[in-house]
Amino acid sequence: MKTEGKFLKRENVALYVRNYALAVIFIFVCMVFAIASPTFLTMTNIIGVLRQVSVNGILAVGMMMVIITGGIDLSIGPLAATAGVVSALLLEKNEGILVPAVLAGILSAAIISMWTGMLVAKMRIAPFIASLSTMSIAKGVVLVIADGVPHTIKDKTYTNIGNGFLWDPSKTGGLSIPIPILVFTAVAIVVGVTLYKTRYGRHIYAVGGNENAAIASGVNTVRVKFCTYVFNGILCGIAGIVLAGRITSGQPTAASGYEMDAITAVIVGGTSMTGGVGRISGTIIGVLIIGVLNNGLVLMGVSSYYQQIIKGVIIAAAVLLDMKTKKN
């Protein structure tokens, strides 16, 4: 079996080079910031960055699955907001039902994402348009439910999902693991195992790689696509809960614009926009690169206007790298 491992490496040189290239870029960016800013490498800052990337990480991992099927989902921001608002409202009315409230929040995001799934899989509407429709619907729905105002979360356990640590950092001199990172790690593992180790995962790649071939191989492409949008909806729900915990309230306009960060991370991570190709490791590095960029540029005092410009250049550079490694 060892020879097989070697084979695997030689055959996928392009893919590995790309993943390593990404890692190299990531380390390089970190080094630049470490030199430029003395606070960058402090424990507090590192933990802060990790906490910040978690929500985008969970969203990006879900987005990656959708993109591998050859689709896209623009509605993830409002979906996340829905989960936060629904759970916050339920807790506001009945104190102490944390678990059901959180589950209901996630479920509500999943239900809304069924709309996208149905439009894309059954009605064969282009994913961009279908999810644009869902985005608008979800934005409205969440405003209606929340009555347009934020709902404060008083439950300590809930806010800990966003702000807490695995153990008290004050006892270990600032060293600890934030809960959001744990959630992100768990989500990444579940998605990774799903993609690489299950029939459904294989079908996701086949549908995105060549839908006709997938159909001709007996894959129920309608079901695969539908399930992927709903799976993504569940992940949006989880991200929404983490976010609501961090900002200690369910806000109807939370997470707006997050879809662009998620898509950026996925593309930077080497996932092909045409579908069929993408790895979880790439997406994680993509998320980290975006997170570190955001953080480092702030530390260096770069204005948010310039941050936008730099991010835009990075996307183009990543895609160019993607195309180049694919050609060889």
Binding site: E11, A206, S272
Partner: peptide, 9 residues
């Protein structure tokens, strides 16, 4: 067109 997923192994 419908025989293989060319981008997979």
């Amino acid at each position: 067109e419908d025989g293989l997923v060319l981008c997979r192994s």
